[in-house]
């Protein structure tokens, strides 16, 4: 069985997107269970699309237990359309027959939650989003999952593999990368692809960014000034005035 986890580097310190760590943990957990309970061999790969520095998160994934890492190297633009990312990921995912592809529910920077379902559609696979529980597939054909809806509801689904799942936080508690594995991972080779190797013709973005702005204020936002003690006093006065104590 082959599992692919899509991981993205986000933020100023270039960490792995929080939700992707949960996706990777879930894949590792499935792998452990498939190997120990059903003596199946599982290969767990990670893939990222990003600037050269993004290989850092692949090393971290090795530290957690990923077997192989793929890196589609791109420039570092301000805005990437999810469709473009999904197309790139699909090119890597198509190189091997993956039974299960996991992504995070969304990336902290783009907050789109689109890349997984788009990847599924490009590959022609079924997709369930916001997955909060998986069971070990007992046959090679299907996996049972629960997906989170709103209002405290969950749908329980049986999905024919190969399939794409987007993973919601709360599904597991991610392990920390092992130092020993991190060191060993230093020797591991990351397979890199250049944009041009995969796509001789550039992929057309379907949306462009024309800038960012601050969200609008919805309340007055009075900022308390002065020392800590001044602020505490003013807060206390506010509570008394509004009869909130």
């Amino acid at each position: 069985m082959k599992i692919l986890v899509c991981i993205k580097q986000v933020g100023d310190d270039g960490e792995t997107n929080r939700f992707d760590v949960h996706a990777l943990e879930e894949a590792l957990d499935l792998k452990d269970q498939l190997q120990t309970q059903l003596s199946k061999s599982v290969v767990l790969d990670v893939v990222t699309v990003g600037p050269p520095g993004a290989c850092k998160i692949i090393r971290r994934a090795f530290g957690m237990g990923a077997d192989r890492g793929f890196h589609c190297v791109t420039e570092k633009p301000d805005f990437v359309s999810s469709f473009v990312t999904a197309t790139r990921l699909a090119a890597v995912a198509q190189k091997e027959p993956y039974d299960l592809i996991l992504t995070g529910i969304m990336s902290a920077d783009m907050m789109a939650g689109q890349t997984g379902p788009m990847l599924a559609k490009i590959l022609g696979l079924p997709c369930a989003t916001s997955v909060i529980k998986t069971s070990v597939p007992s046959s090679d054909m299907t996996i049972e999952v629960e997906r989170e809806l709103d209002n405290g509801l969950r749908d329980c689904l049986t999905i024919t593999m190969p399939a794409v799942l987007t993973i919601q936080a709360g599904i597991n508690t991610p392990r920390y990368p092992k130092l020993s594995s991190m060191l060993a991972a230093g020797q591991k080779k990351i397979e890199t692809f250049k944009e041009l190797d995969l796509f001789p013709e550039p992929i057309q973005a379907r949306e462009i960014s024309i800038g960012t702005e601050y969200p609008k204020k919805t309340r007055s936002g009075r900022v308390l000034e002065g020392s800590l003690s001044d602020k505490a006093a003013e807060f206390l006065a506010f509570l008394k005035e509004k009869d909130l104590l």
């Binding site: 469709f83 997984g116 379902p117 989003t129 916001s130 379907r206 949306e207």
Partner: peptide, 19 residues
Amino acid sequence: GQDFAPGLAVGINAASVPA
């Protein structure tokens, strides 16, 4: 909506703007 919108957009070659 988040479950089917992105796939629909790909399916009809549309642009997609979430949230």
